[in-house]
Design a protein around this nucleic acid. Structure first.
Lengths: 334, 334
DNA sequence: CATAAGTCTGGGAACGCTCTCAGAGATCGC
DNA sequence: GCGATCTCTGAGAGCGTTCCCAGACTTATG
């Protein structure tokens, strides 16, 4: 069943049917109704491949998640939330969402090759890009359309991105900790080759310096964005007796909490604890954290990408979203 | 850049280039090498739309997740795990994965319409289908290719599916609880219009009857697959003093645990607790549960779907995977 | 009333592949 | 040595759309 068949049944030409389907002007109301009826009767949907072939647009947006398994579905709901946001934006404009998920232990090189090989998508959303990422490098080199959901490596100007103001947020966190009287404020970071982690560390250092406090390397541990790393990081910090810990993400904070509990320390009396992202687990754990709607970043990135695809916006665009400090029991007690 | 351009640069015909790309016989080694080199030089990838148009195959598999937001990214890592499994199978055979995510509060009707409208995918994977699901009904009626990851409503024979042996697993759980001396075994179910929930309830009842124990309606609460429902369900059960609770899913069990803790009851001393699915949270909470690798269900379903698409297998296929009881502290103490 | 502008419709080309067919040359079997 | 078979290559048609152009008919304009 194709345009021609519908045309014949409705007693018009293929062109006219096409016009009706694409909601174009210059079709008489009478004809339009007749064609619509035949389409409904036949339950006809135009062939997307044929359409894509001529318009050079598939209406598909790809999202690449290069992290390994446990980060995607484990204790970290970051990616599902991001996806939900992307999906909402995409639905609204009748695009489709293609998902590229790295396999456990898959090399970045291999993943990049996979994403690039199939050319289904009109554009890509990229997350968790690291310094020297082959996918990032390739897309940039070959001038393919994509939007990042973090600041790009080296603040690469040519790249469009949507991110939150990590630096300012981290400063706010440290200011809060200082305001409640903490002085030995430790930091456990996420993967330090991801810009989110870098910027959060930067804000932490800025705020300490602004208050004339020392930046003690013993109080900074480089970790990864998951619970186990938070636990390990906290263990390393314990001998240096911090009175506050600023984790690079909520799941890291939860890991740190595990270690603190194990060591018999009380939160916030002995050690105040702050996370980042305000995942749903943060509320349950009564964790002070930075709220920034991961979902909104996702939908904003998708909207931006679609605008770029449709030529409504000039490339590149840089969007920095504000954040909000959510104070809970992990810093102020009850 | 298309086949014709590559052909010209390599001094051969379009047909020959096509043969090389599709790895067909009857191309001399010399020519093959030359063509491959030009392809590499030009960084050429064939246009998938053109290919799809003629082969009538896009190499895209759709996965429909009709649940609302909180179920997708909330405390429940079921869907991300399923997706990871699907993604792995799909990658292996160089297909692509299209994701249809329902929006919060989106009507099933509307969701179905959305999934059906775009015809990008060669086949669909369907999850969390309910009785009378419009998407399910439509796909069945119009004979579209799909595979379910649960038993279909009414055990519809014409549908291909991959599921776990929920009934047997539930029986195993109840047998275990009886073996450790429990007699007032309660049940909190998931959405009772989802077959997984129905079957787990069925197994629970079977096992009670097999041991000559009464099936007490007061000990059965109908809930939903998330933590809040588990909490509410447990509250309802408390007055009836169960000495064991079999939750329809791990997240339900966690909610029940919240309510038990709040009521000052000890697990497993006062009330033994069992979940289902063995999500990663189950291990952390030391929850006895049924392990059945959600990931494997996903990858098995994807493989099956691809086999059906490629005509390697006859439709329909019914695959029931075994499960394993994982005994942890929530039933046997430490 | 003649011309211009606007509305509506259909036909043909093109998008970039795959597939079938035909034919040329090499190899084989008897 | 000669038809039969196998290997290799190219040309043409076709997949189902959109887009451009031409033409018919209607309405406005001076």
């Amino acid at each position: 069943m194709n345009l021609e068949d519908i045309a014949e049944k409705a007693g018009v030409s293929r062109s006219t049917v096409s016009r009706v389907i694409n909601n174009e002007r210059y079709v008489s109301e009478k004809v339009r109704q007749r064609v619509l009826q035949v389409i409904a009767e036949e339950n006809f949907r135009p062939n997307p491949a044929a359409r894509t072939l001529v318009t050079r647009r598939s209406g598909i947006i790809g999202t690449a998640i290069p992290q390994t398994t446990n980060v995607f579905f484990g204790d970290n709901s970051y990616y599902p939330m991001l996806l939900q946001g992307v999906a909402e934006a995409v639905n609204q404009r009748d695009y489709a969402l293609l998902l590229y998920l790295a396999e456990e232990q898959e090399e970045r090189e291999n993943f990049a090759e996979r994403v690039v090989r199939q050319r289904h998508a009109d554009g890509l959303i990229l997350s968790s890009v690291i310094e020297g990422d082959p996918l990032f490098t390739y897309l940039l080199k070959h001038d393919r359309r994509f939007v990042m959901v973090e600041t790009p490596p080296r603040h690469e100007e040519r790249v469009s991105y949507v991110t939150v103001d990590n630096v300012a947020a981290a400063e706010t966190v440290v200011n809060h900790l200082i305001a409640i009287g903490r002085r030995r404020i430790a930091k456990i970071t996420g993967q330090i080759n991801i810009m989110d982690a870098v910027e959060r560390l930067e804000g932490y250092q800025n705020a300490l310096r602004a208050h004339g406090l020392p930046v003690d390397p013993n109080l900074i541990v480089h970790g990864r964005f998951h619970r186990a790393a938070g636990y390990e990081g906290m263990k390393q910090l314990l001998p240096h007796k911090p009175d506050a810990v600023f984790a690079g993400g909520d799941t890291i904070a939860l890991g740190a909490l595990d270690a603190l509990t194990e060591a018999g320390l009380c939160v916030p009396e002995d050690v105040a604890l702050v996370g980042f992202d305000d995942l749903d687990v943060a509320e349950r754990a009564q964790l002070t954290t930075i709220n920034h709607s991961v979902q909104y970043v996702g939908s904003r990135a998708a909207t931006l990408l679609m605008d770029l695809i449709e030529g409504r916006l000039e490339h590149p665009q840089h969007i920095v979203l504000p954040t909000r400090l959510v104070i809970r029991r992990s810093t102020v007690g009850s």
